[in-house]
Design a protein around this nucleic acid. Structure first.
Lengths: 217, 217
DNA sequence: TCCGTTATGTAATCATCGATTACATTTCGA
DNA sequence: TCGAAATGTAATCGATGATTACATAACGGA
């Protein structure tokens, strides 16, 4: 093992440096940089995030043990925004109409995924950090799922559904919105036209088709 | 630009080397190594593929201009297998029952995706190589899509569908199977039990739920 | 107010990877 | 048979994630 060189004394920075030695809230800035990089379609690297924060390449590792931890923190932040939007939509939906609530949930899900594709990917794919490494993300996700289960149970209670197999309906519904969101992400949706809202309208149509299919005629 | 060193003459390999200088079909071996690496869940790197082929790190670049090209070739191979399985399933399905054919298509799709998750990912995600860089992949995919459109048109012609919006049905169906496959891939499906076939049965159930939803009652 | 402990950033260094280039060897057809 | 084309090797580059030694700032108790 080659011993590290004693290294000659390093030049001190002049005391009049513009930026203070301490950054302020580097952790937060790094998370935002990671999300911004993702949103721009760029590859997210620790070094690039450090560069954006105008900090040395090693500095981020004071706040995150490794790259995965940074990505997990970014995912948690994205998930918070995602969940906030869904809950806002649900709070405006009629409290006593389960199918309308189901629709509001799905629509908010799809809209957010269409408008924040890169962030949706970070949340959903195990690509950016080890799967299940974030307890917060796991719990948060489980709560959203429980929410849809509750809504479906209500719908079944009011006799609105054709099938009694709620688990199956729930998985199918999830697969539908997840699939649509990922098709958009992976470039599998036809380019319907120049108008931006067209994809969202198709998303809405697909959701309505599904709901019509599970609803009692 | 620092000129390259003249480099002292290299030692020649003894003529009695075990492996011949030329590999035989390195291109093919590299593609298989890439697919195998993916299937093992390992990260696919050109170097590792070269290592598996017992070849120098630079050798692959004689057959592929860059990493993306190797991955694209691997994707084309995987897509061929995928498509072959779907066409086999369709050839066994009743020729005159569009909904049964639709179901056979979806089931073959889901089964292959469940059993070859990593290969499905290589095919579907633009992660491994630049999107649309493989004309073969694009064309192949378009043909599969056209196949489902034809089946749906037949079903509509026989008056089997509740809705006349075939485009919407087609996208919804695609989102459903794509979403289920990706949920499996991304670890979003509950671990129903030890038995392996359980996920495939749920896939089948979800597919049937969808078909029941679009079929005229 | 001083001082030492802790938090936080820097500089240097390493291994790995994709990629390129110069060179060596084999293959194959004119 | 001989020379060009194909194919592999070795050396090297720049970028990246990661680790370590060190420097500096921040903060709280005596």
């Amino acid at each position: 093992m080659p011993a590290r060189q004693p290294s000659k004394p390093r030049a001190r920075r002049p005391r009049s440096q513009a930026r203070p030695y301490h950054h302020g809230d580097l952790r937060r800035v790094l998370i935002d940089a990671a999300l911004q990089l993702a949103a721009e379609g760029a590859e997210v690297s620790v070094r690039e995030a450090a560069r954006r924060a105008a900090v040395s390449p090693g500095a981020p590792f004071r706040h995150f043990p490794n790259r995965d931890a940074l990505m997990a923190a970014a995912a948690e932040e994205a998930q918070r925004r995602f969940r906030a939007e869904i809950e806002a939509a649900l709070s405006e939906a009629p409290a006593t109409n389960p199918l309308a609530r189901f629709r509001a949930f799905g629509l908010a899900y799809l809209r957010w995924a269409m408008r924040n594709p890169a962030h949706f990917e970070i949340i959903s794919t195990g690509r950016y950090f080890v799967h299940g490494s974030s307890a917060e993300l796991t719990r948060d996700n489980a709560e959203l799922i429980a929410l849809t289960e509750g809504i479906l149970a209500e719908a079944a209670g009011q006799g609105l559904l054709r099938s009694a197999d709620l688990k199956r309906i729930q998985i199918a519904g999830r697969a539908l919105v997840y699939g649509f969101a990922r098709m958009n992400l992976d470039g599998h949706l036809p380019r319907w036209g120049v108008e931006a809202g067209e994809i969202e309208r198709m998303a809405e149509g697909v959701l309505d088709l599904f709901i019509a299919g599970i609803a009692k005629p």
